[in-house]
Design a protein around this nucleic acid. Structure first.
Lengths: 117, 117
DNA sequence: TGACAATACTGTGCTATATATAGTATAGTG
DNA sequence: CACTATACTATATATAGCACAGTATTGTCA
């Protein structure tokens, strides 16, 4: 099995790993305004962050379970019920910390990736 | 169990998730020059990317298994044997792709995190 | 009217992976 | 001579993305 990985598969895998951690930050940041899953998927996609439903919905539930998001069903007339998620106070604290960590990390990585001496 | 997470634990968790995907990129980039685990750990730590041994060593083996790194034992006299890892041709391709993906993602995320309209 | 795509979500199970933990062993230092 | 730093291996567990499948409604186009 060793070394039998098609290059594209390996790459896809690594790329999604890269994306993975950033999604939490992105979702938390977007949820400063109430959002429901499908809308979120689309707005993130527009920003270049494609995320499959199978990842997004579980992520939203997980973040709610951890107390970073709160949600409620909303029955706008004439439309399907939607579950709206919004960031909690706890979530805002986490978002602030994560954002600063993000800036730190991205700076480190950019240094590392920039052309060497 | 729901909602019983101490905030710090949740945060630690998310922060390490954030770091996780970036490590692969960082390691690949550093291995343009032969590196061994312990040295890598230290140079990354200096750059602000702390990575426990329990994460780094398995990562190196995994990347070699996937054909992105190659390694060999080296017995410098007077010192303990070290396993040196270096990026492979395949690895360089992956690194290039990942780097461009990284720039793309970090731009998206920075947009998202920057003050709103 | 009837089919098909888009919308909007839930649930289950697989697999990949980080991390904790423990263990081995040598070199240097006080 | 003990302790710390160095340098690595191995195993077990828990987490979480993602694929896949399912449900159901709304809108559209022919």
């Amino acid at each position: 099995m060793v070394n039998d990985f098609p290059t594209t598969l390996v790459y896809e895998n690594l790329a999604s790993e890269l994306r993975r951690g950033l999604l939490v930050l992105a979702v938390l940041a977007e949820c400063d305004v109430p959002q429901y899953g499908y809308l979120l998927k689309q707005s993130l996609s527009q920003r270049g962050l494609d995320i499959p439903e199978g990842t997004l919905y579980p992520l939203l539930r997980r973040l709610e379970e951890q107390g970073l998001l709160v949600s409620q069903w909303q029955l706008a007339d004439e439309s399907r019920p939607r579950r709206y998620y919004q960031i909690s106070a706890q979530g805002q604290t986490a978002l602030a910390q994560l954002t600063s960590e993000w800036h730190h990390l991205s700076r480190s990585l950019n240094d590392l990736l920039s052309p060497k001496e």
